[in-house]
Every structure is written in structure tokens, then in C-alpha cells.
Amino acid sequence: MSSTIKSPWLIHYDASSCNGCDIEVLACLTPMYDVERFGIINTGNPKHADIFLVTGSVNERNISVVRQIYEQMLEPKVVIACGICACSGGIFKECYNTLGGVDVAIPVDVYAPGCAVRPEAIIDAVVCGLGVLEEKRAALAAGELPPAELPELPTAADKQLDGVSVRDAAAAELHAEIRDE
């Protein structure tokens, strides 16, 4: 075990979460769950962070922000999707502005489901993530860590529901309304 995983620092970004998962992430850091006793510190600087906690699904506006934070973090790094929205889009999957889970923007290492995700689940996911972090660190030291494969960023125009483009459906609906009037 290396020193890297003894005191992992994390950065949290709220993609388009409802706050429920965000306040649970913060609750992990405060006295009841107190992950700071394990050396885990919440930082605001991507360059300082080892673990990226993302809550909420991504949309067209914030997908580039999520990608930027990820790209600014230094290797080895681990991404944890907190909450069902970050995993798959959750209850908002059918919304026109939701592009899906965080994995459409960046590679995710650990998924922590739940609505809202419970602090125990977050801590469990972070502990899981530490294993991944150690693997990546060892691979990096051996010069064998492959560069992360970043998917092409989707836009709202690509969003499909039941095989139909959301944007086309909205345009057709609008045209029908105008015709009726």
C-alpha cells in the first residue's frame, strides 16, 4: 500500500443534482460520519484532488465543466458517480435537457446508487475507489497506465427518447400547435 491512498483528497462537483446527494456528500465530511479522520479532505482545486465525486446527471450546459475538471486532475485519479442520477440519469432520464449519467462525459470508476445516496454508500464507494486508485498508481509507476479514453461529448440534439430525437419531437409539437391556431 502506498502513501497515495492513505490521505486521498477529493473534489466534489454538482452536475445537475437536486442537492440531496450534495448535502449527503457534505454530511460525510462532518462529525456524524467524519471521513476527515481517514485523511480525506474536500478540496476546491482539481489539481489537488485524487478523487472526483460527481452528483447528478449531465446536461448540455455543464457537460464541458465536468470534462474540464476531470482533465485538470492529475493521474492517478478516480471518478465516483454519487447517486442514481450520476449513474444513469435516474428519475430525470426522460427530461429533455438530461443527456444521461456522468459516464457519457468522463470514464467512471465506481458507481454509488441511491436517491438520495446514503453517506454509508458514499464512504463505501470511496473505499472501493481507493483500491482503483492504488491500481492506477502502480500502473503509472510502471509506466503502464493507458491514457483515459474520453467519449465524444453528446449535445442536446443527439438526445433520443424511444428512438425519436427529442429536439425533432419538440419542433413537430410546436409546428402542430401553430398549425392548429
Partner: peptide, 14 residues
């Protein structure tokens, strides 16, 4: 604004 816009008012139709 707009970073957290999900468009959930429209979900009322689903």
C-alpha cells in the same frame, strides 16, 4: 444560470 436545468416541469406529461 442553467447549469442544473433538467426540464422536469415537462415530465408532467410523462
Amino acid at each position: 444560470v442553467g447549469f442544473i436545468h433538467r426540464g422536469l416541469e415537462k415530465l408532467v406529461t410523462k
